[in-house]
């Protein structure tokens, strides 16, 4: 059984490699992404200082001791930047995964059951999509941050996930509609399988690649949302994230004082992270989304 699962995972990885390597951007994206993962995992070994400790005088320009200078309370900016990779990747992928799974369940239900279920769920998706994205995410974050027992970082994750599911629901719904009509689903029905086991044993496996591709694609948007929220000051003020660094840079007049070493690097890192995921997502989506592949 375990060898069965591991061979399945191996097949999955192989398929992804094929999908990614079909286009050059996919490979470039993967390389950039692996680089970021290494930085995030080995942050304590790569970072020259503890980003939470005062390691020098405040507002230092770049120097051999502090390659990117120090911030307003004397923390090393390069170390903040390195640790920031963790927060960005973590929030981005977790929010994208939750949002995609919720969207996938809604899409599966709408596509499979049709009729009233489909009408109600599709209307809900339409209403949700007519809400202002950023404002709604800010609002939900403010609500969840206030909830007792929810750590701030998860409040942000849930807020982003809750605004990103409807788009996934649409994609999964149309994929489910096309799979539903295939002969083996009819055969499964004929031998008397329940609706739930048809959905989870026969339809879900067929769209699992699409779902993983969606997660990766949505992660780029989730990372941008996280950056915007922290830049606005929503989020854990003590967590080192790139958006939060920019929030403090702006609040402490780094832009007006021309401290480029403070406000340039976080933006570059956000862009690199988003781009790496977007590159992978673009080539995966093209491979797994049948509508895009045919055209």
């Amino acid at each position: 059984m375990s060898s069965n699962i591991s061979s399945k995972i191996l097949n999955f990885v192989k398929e992804f490699w094929i999908a990614l390597s079909m286009r050059k951007v996919g490979v470039v994206g993967l390389a950039m992404f692996l680089g970021l993962v290494i930085v995030a995992v080995f942050a304590p070994y790569i970072a020259p200082y503890d980003p939470y400790a005062r390691s020098g005088a405040p507002f230092q320009p770049p120097s051999p001791e502090h390659p990117l200078g120090t911030n307003d309370i004397g923390q090393d900016i390069l170390s903040e930047l390195i640790y920031g990779t963790r927060v960005s990747l973590f929030i981005g992928f977790l929010a994208a995964a939750i949002g995609t799974l919720v969207g996938a369940l809604v899409g599966l239900a709408a596509g499979f059951f049709g009729g009233t279920v489909d009408n109600v769920l599709s209307a809900l998706v339409d209403i949700w999509l007519s809400l202002p994205q950023l404002l709604f995410t800010i609002f939900l974050a403010a609500v969840f941050i206030k909830m007792k027992g929810v750590p701030m970082i998860y409040a942000i994750v849930i807020a982003i996930a809750l605004t990103s599911w409807p788009a996934v629901a649409r994609v999964v719904r149309s994929a489910t509609l096309s799979i539903k009509e295939r002969p083996y689903i009819e055969a499964a029905r004929a031998v008397g399988l329940s609706n739930l086991s048809i959905i989870f044993k026969h339809i879900l496996p067929n769209i699992s690649s699409l779902i993983v591709a969606e997660i990766i694609y949505r992660a780029s948007g989730a990372m941008l949302s996280e950056a915007s929220l922290s830049f606005l000051g929503l989020g854990d003020p003590t967590t080192k994230s790139w958006g939060m660094m920019l929030h403090y840079a702006m609040a402490r007049y780094a832009v007006l004082l021309g401290y480029w070493w403070w406000f340039l690097p976080p933006g570059i890192m956000i862009s690199v992270a988003v781009l790496s995921v977007l590159f992978m997502g673009l080539s995966l989506e093209e491979y797994f989304n049948p509508r895009l592949r045919s055209s």
């Binding site: 950056a227 830049f231 920019l246 933006g267």
Partner: peptide, 14 residues
């Protein structure tokens, strides 16, 4: 579309 919009605005401001 990969560059965070607010950062682009900061660059212009700077």
């Amino acid at each position: 579309s990969s560059v965070p919009y607010f950062w682009l605005a900061i660059l212009f401001l700077y």
